[in-house]
């Protein structure tokens, strides 16, 4: 009897494991926008995110779809990515994509170094490589997020304008080691030194990516620095935590919060006026711009300092960087008036 139970349980456990594996495998081929027609002379572009199926990349995919529709007569665009954000899944997929000889692969690499040999192989096969979102060590061009300095400046400018350009402020960051955080904070500090002599950063703390931790930190900071005028919360999960702390302390309007997060998360706070604006970029625009960049690269080519038009987003000029060249997304400021236009 007991043995029987043991067997059933182990069979069940194995079944659950297999099911979860199968579920991973099935959605692996999540591809879209195959517009049919004669595909021989069309430019073939593959766009690969870090992972498929999460809100953020679903929003990116909308931009990819839009560009793919606009270019449907001249290009064939495939959206394909792993269901787990791991580099080995991406390598596996690329290995099956390379023999099909697309013209361009756009990749958001889960690991810039580990994916290098595979991307070199693609280039040897005559495929052009665009990195987007997260850079790779090998690529013809990088479609970056918003330039770090532009972004840092926008965050501190928003805060400064709301606190009358003076007073003590604190920063809540994700970790002291994340590249984007380090460069954003550097930009904020440089901007303060240059433009806002009366603003002083009294403390900088890390909250990881944890709303509860950010909430606790914000309320601790307000109590231990009673004169605090503003809090900058960087990292999408941290901003709602900080805003929440200010609201529950009854200090809305007295302590101003600024930072970056996603429109869906911040919508209630923007609408009830707990925060005036939130800085980020548009996820669909990232997909849209990546496709147009890839198309330009495959047709007329891209050159440093030479502007090209990316559909209705206007002109972009590639600039030289350490590996090859790059362009950056424009900044988007979410307010109560435009937050409803975005869904991610």
């Amino acid at each position: 009897m007991k043995k029987h139970v043991k067997k059933v349980v182990s069979v069940l456990t194995v079944a659950v494991m297999l099911l979860s594996l199968a579920a991973c495998g099935k959605s692996d081929g999540g591809s879209s926008s195959d517009n049919g027609g004669d595909s021989k002379d069309k430019v073939k572009i593959v766009v690969m995110p870090k992972v498929v199926g999460i809100d953020y990349y679903n929003a990116v995919q909308k931009g990819v779809d839009k560009a793919s529709e606009e270019l449907s007569d001249v290009a064939e665009i495939t959206w394909q990515g792993p269901t787990e954000a791991t580099v080995d899944k991406q390598i596996e997929m690329l290995e099956t994509i390379i023999p099909t000889k697309p013209d361009v692969i756009c990749i958001a690499a889960n690991d810039p170094a580990a994916i290098q040999p595979t991307l070199e192989k693609a280039q040897e096969a005559g495929i052009k490589v665009v990195s987007w979102d997260a850079d790779a060590n090998v690529r013809d061009i990088f479609v970056n997020l918003v330039d770090y300095t532009v972004f840092g400046n926008a965050v501190i400018d928003s805060l400064a304008s709301q606190i009358g350009e003076e007073g003590d402020i604190a920063i809540i960051t994700t970790t002291f080691t994340a590249t984007n955080q380090v460069l954003w904070i550097e930009a904020i500090e440089a901007r303060i030194a240059e433009k806002y002599p009366n603003i002083k950063i009294v403390d900088t703390r890390e909250a990881g990516e944890d709303t509860q931790k950010a909430n606790t930190l914000a309320s601790d900071l307000m109590k231990s620095y009673p004169e605090l005028k503003g809090i900058i919360a960087l990292g999408a999960p941290n901003l709602p935590g900080a805003v929440n702390a200010v609201v529950s302390a009854g200090k809305t309007g007295e302590v101003i919060v600024a930072g970056n997060s996603t429109p869906n998360t911040m919508k209630p706070y923007l609408e009830d006026g707990s925060i005036r604006d939130v800085q980020l970029w548009s996820a669909p625009d990232h997909g849209y711009l990546s496709v147009y960049t890839a198309y330009q690269l495959a047709t007329e080519g891209l050159e440093e300092g030479k502007a090209f038009t990316a559909g209705d987003m206007g002109e972009f000029t590639p600039e030289k960087d350490e590996i090859s060249m790059s362009i950056g997304l424009p900044l988007v400021e979410f307010t109560k008036d435009n937050v409803g236009d975005y869904d991610f």
Binding site: V51, G53, N58, T265
Partner: peptide, 18 residues
């Protein structure tokens, strides 16, 4: 890791808000 994996399949990694 099984629970986390299944959870990502169920929620598709999205945040629940509102």
């Amino acid at each position: 890791s099984i629970y986390r994996g299944l959870l990502i399949i169920i929620t598709k990694g999205s945040w629940i808000n509102g």
